[in-house]
Write a protein that binds this DNA or RNA. Structure first.
Lengths: 222, 222
DNA sequence: CGACTGTCGCCTGTCGACAGTCGTCATAAA
DNA sequence: TTTATGACGACTGTCGACAGGCGACAGTCG
């Protein structure tokens, strides 16, 4: 997680306190520092940050709207609890959106896009070779995130962004389930090849298979 | 009384003031009472509702997170402006998610589900016969909403809910573009038939075609 | 001993006020 | 007349305080 955190903290230079709290809280939830089911108490959080409840409350509300927090009126808000069933449902939607994205990428990709994806695969290989599982997971997410961002569709962006936050949350629990790390990295090469080949159906099929394989790794019962 | 609730104000019996404001504001935006690009001023809204800014601010923040409002820090928040391009991108994602939903419905539908959908088609026919275009649009949205709710997937729910709010927003502008109203209603019968037939691919294909036809009606340039 | 009921404390929901920032408009310089 | 500049006004962002709801616990009744 440190990889993304480093990248984000330098990039994110929000103005308002509420935005900073939002980014901080989101990061702590997705990194697992705040565990699933754990309770969020506005006043305590505000005190620990040395600010008033207002910006904390705003951040919490936004996180709730994004589905990372669940709120019970007049009582408590807690971090979303992922379950194998939810992960399966999440992946089903993920496949639908990402295949749409890759079809668009096949159509509109530029040379530098291919280079970027190539670089991310290399990154994954390096992480795999170093047996750095969290790093590998992060790199894989970065690869897929780059993919759907290339689709340049604001709705894909919004939806995929939401889904990936939930994916990260799901991955905080058991991020060590890979049998052969190198295989995970190599699995992405056919995707790249399919994009370059210019065949949308082939690319979509390859991606769909890849994601489902990934699901199988984490939630075997499917 | 009999049909699905259209008037939110009578149905919604939320607890907190913020929730009520959220529902009210959302309703006014989606109905077109507050126009696209129009500015939202917290203090003015609070005063007109006879409450403080806090719940108004919370509602506005949630709507911003949902993408119906756009916020410029320290200055203003305005209602999202839809464009033909955005509508096309929206529909692309909509097709992806709804085809996923209908595949699930093919697999798990119960007899009462079919009855419900049948009823909604009848509703559409009645609206079409009465040349009630807004009513027809509402009934059609209700049909599709019922469809993806039957998929019983929380992520489909969340994503489709978001997309449909944006669809409603897009439809506030030109909700009168149908050539033959009856055709619109009848178009849904093949969908129902495909669901009953139990062929997921056929159902998905039929739905995809239907949605794209609908898009063509509103945004001809595609 | 177990189920019900009333009280208590913690936390959320709401309020009014203050401070900071951005656009606007008038004014001045070219 | 056109463009730069600076004060003004309006609105958002943040603060501390109060009120009210919900769960927890203890005491009571069966």
């Amino acid at each position: 997680m440190t990889g993304a955190a480093k990248k984000d903290s330098s990039t994110i230079q929000r103005n308002t306190v509420a935005d900073q709290v939002y980014a901080d809280l989101r990061g702590r939830i997705l990194s697992g520092e705040i565990q699933q089911g754990e309770r969020i108490v506005e006043a305590a959080l505000a005190k620990s940050l040395g600010i008033s409840r207002a910006p904390v409350r705003e951040a919490v509300n936004r996180l709730t709207e994004a589905g990372l927090l669940e709120s019970r009126t007049h009582f408590s808000t807690t971090v979303l609890q992922m379950t194998p069933e939810k992960v399966r449902q999440l992946y089903a939607v993920r496949v639908a959106v990402e295949t749409l994205a890759i079809r668009e990428v096949v159509r509109r990709h530029r040379p530098e896009d291919i280079e970027l994806l190539k670089g991310l695969i290399k990154e994954m290989m390096a992480r795999a070779k170093a047996k750095d599982v969290p790093g590998l997971v992060e790199a894989e997410l970065a690869f897929h995130e780059a993919l759907w961002k290339m689709a340049a569709n604001p709705y894909v962006d919004r939806v995929a962004g939401l889904l990936f936050d939930h994916m990260r949350l799901a991955l905080t629990v058991d991020n060590a389930g890979y049998s052969d790390l190198m295989d995970v990295a190599r699995e992405h090469e056919p995707l790249l090849a399919a994009i370059v080949s210019g065949d949308p159906d082939k690319a979509a099929q390859a991606l769909s298979t890849h994601i489902m394989t990934s699901l199988e790794t984490f939630v075997p019962s499917a």
